[in-house]
């Protein structure tokens, strides 16, 4: 190969490398911009929670001062961290955590069992039950909320933790998610365990459940977010402080005549932390579940 050809190839290679470098630079810039757009409201939230003048927070909104705090203070957090009194936000946070833990815990058991039976059980009319489960998914929560209120009040369940947990434990979406995951596992696993004399429950508990970590993580996160963000339902069924969750309590700051941005922001930061921790704890399996679903179609 002549020197000329080598030089031309090298020039071409350099040009390609430079093009790739430019493309990466553009990609990085785009990612940074997207990240900034996503992170900036959160940053504004945290910054505002460290300011102690609600009028100043309002005056700063819409300018760069919304992202800067000159005299940070934790006073808002102390104010919303009460565990007793008329506005016991610490207690409301614990209430929400309790409701979240019970809903997700019971939800994982109930939905995974239902999904497993639909995938591998010997139930008659499984296909019909599955169709019904899918059909139920399209009914929006809002359309059944009033009949549900009447049902729980007749059952004497209002203003309790149970009323915020029990109606949301079984969900068509999560049953279907588990069904889909279990149905994709090899048939041989089920048959081998059956030959070894394992009961259906034993097969579910000892073989299929340990293999379904990505599905468990996905359902935990989705169910956790859903339970954590419940607003209308607890508003309708809670009366007193006893079982009030933090999402309803935060609405107190958005009054008729004024908004207490300082404490609302601090309470929102506190409300954001547990769900962020839940996501960080399960994100590895959550992502792998989504990637897996995408690959398998």
């Amino acid at each position: 190969m002549s020197d000329l050809a080598i030089t031309a190839m090298q020039t071409e290679l350099t040009r390609e490398r430079s093009a790739i470098r430019s493309l990466r630079l553009v990609q990085t810039a785009c990612i940074l911009v997207i990240a900034l757009v996503i992170v900036s409201p959160l940053l504004m939230l945290v910054v505002a929670s460290l300011k102690d003048d609600r009028f100043q927070i309002l005056a700063d909104m819409g300018s760069f001062r919304a992202f800067w705090v000159s005299n940070p203070t934790l006073s808002n957090f102390w104010e919303v961290g009460n565990f007793s009194g008329e506005l016991a936000f610490g207690r409301y946070l614990l209430n929400s955590l309790f409701i979240l833990a019970c809903t997700v815990g019971a939800g994982l058991v109930v939905n995974s069992m239902a999904g497993f039976v639909l995938a591998w059980g010997s139930l008659r009319g499984r296909a019909l039950v599955l169709s019904l489960v899918i059909a139920l998914y399209v009914i929006p929560q809002e359309s059944i909320i009033m009949p549900l209120v009447i049902m729980v009040s007749r059952a004497g369940m209002t203003d309790s933790f149970a009323v915020q947990i029990v109606p949301w434990v079984a969900s068509p979406l999560y049953i279907f998610l588990f069904y889909q995951f279990f149905a994709q596992l090899p048939k041989e696993l089920f048959e081998a365990a059956e030959i070894d004399g394992a009961s259906v429950f034993r097969i579910y508990r000892s073989i299929f459940l340990p293999l379904s970590l990505p599905a468990l993580a996905t359902v935990s996160i989705l169910m956790g977010i859903e339970s954590w963000n419940q607003y209308l339902w607890p508003t309708l069924v809670t009366q007193t402080d006893y079982a009030r969750p933090i999402a309803v309590a935060i609405a107190t700051f958005f009054g008729q005549d004024s908004i207490y941005w300082d404490r609302a922001m601090a309470a929102s930061v506190l409300m954001m932390l547990p769900i962020l921790a839940l996501y960080l704890a399960f994100q590895r399996w959550f992502v792998s579940s989504f990637v897996g679903s995408a690959v398998k179609g």
Partner: peptide
Amino acid sequence: YAPHDAYNEKFSAAVMA
């Protein structure tokens, strides 16, 4: 207590229940 923006819904629910 009922949040300001969901007051009417809360009252309707109380009436129905």
